[in-house]
């Protein structure tokens, strides 16, 4: 099995967001592998442990993203590819244009990614890529089995309902929480990761990449912080009184019930 995992590096979910000159400040911010992508990495490693093959983690991002890829290598992925180029705009069409060009000539059996990234949260890239590569996809999976006759049977979380879907391979899947419990990198894993193949490329290193039709389809006008919420009223009295008081306030003051 030749398995590729799409990976993004994101802020730790416990980080606060602050702006400096209208941009997000990353001073002192802790970065992590996007949590949903971590499930994808874990699943890919498990499949290869069961039935052999190779896991390649692929990312587009600044040089710093190398740390996240090294984490995936330390978990057990075999190779990493990082595409770093300031000319790639923050737009899903453009990003997928690059990924499609890079993967042309490769023949992945499976592509795994996260359900969405916890920073921009659009959840477009993986599914768009499936379309560009003309392979089926199932989004938001919580279980993945490869059958003896070379198909995939997955469970998809559809807002609480579970769809059991059988699909031909090659295919692309995006990981939802509950798919697995990602392992922590071990010390020997971290040592080994340093010797694993790690390629860093720019657009100039991708032969199939074309500047035609590369333009971003969307662009950012403005970035801001939401209005801060203020602490409200702490109710008083015994619990019974507080409960009645709350219901009254919701009805009379807030008028939400």
């Amino acid at each position: 099995m030749d398995i590729w995992v799409l990976l993004k590096q994101t802020f730790d979910t416990e980080e606060k967001i602050t702006l400096v000159n209208g941009n997000i400040d990353d001073t002192g911010v802790k970065y992590i592998v996007n949590p949903y992508d971590e499930y994808a990495v874990e699943e890919a490693i498990r499949i290869v442990e069961r039935q052999g093959g190779k896991v390649t983690v692929l990312s587009i991002g600044p040089e710093k993203t190398g740390e996240a890829l090294r984490t995936a290598l330390a978990m057990g992925a075999d190779e990493a590819v990082l595409i770093t180029d300031d000319r790639i705009p923050q737009d899903e069409w453009a990003i997928v244009h690059v990924l499609t060009a890079y993967l042309t000539g490769h023949k992945p059996d499976l592509i795994l990614g996260g359900n969405f990234s916890v920073d921009h949260g659009a959840g477009q890239v993986a599914i768009r890529l499936a379309h560009q590569l003309d392979i089926p996809h199932v989004g938001s999976i919580t279980k993945l089995d490869i059958t003896a006759d070379g198909k995939a049977v997955v469970q998809r979380d559809a807002e609480g309902d579970i769809e059991i879907i059988e699909t031909a391979i090659p295919a692309l899947f995006t990981a939802q929480q509950g798919l697995n419990e990602p392992r922590y990198p071990t010390l020997p894993g971290i040592m080994k990761a340093k010797k694993k193949p790690f390629r860093q490329l720019t657009l100039d290193d991708i032969p199939s990449f074309s500047w035609d039709d590369f333009a971003a389809r969307t662009s950012r006008l403005e970035l801001s912080l939401p209005p801060a919420r203020q602490a409200g009223i702490l109710l008083k009295g015994d619990m019974h009184e507080q409960a009645l008081d709350l219901v009254r306030r919701l009805h009379e003051d807030a008028k939400v019930i």
Binding site: I17, L19, D119, H120, G121, L221, L225
Partner: peptide
């Protein structure tokens, strides 16, 4: 649209 699940907000044009 929200970014970081609503910790920031962006306006984008299309």
């Amino acid at each position: 649209r929200p970014l970081y699940a609503g910790k920031a907000v962006e306006k984008r044009t299309i």
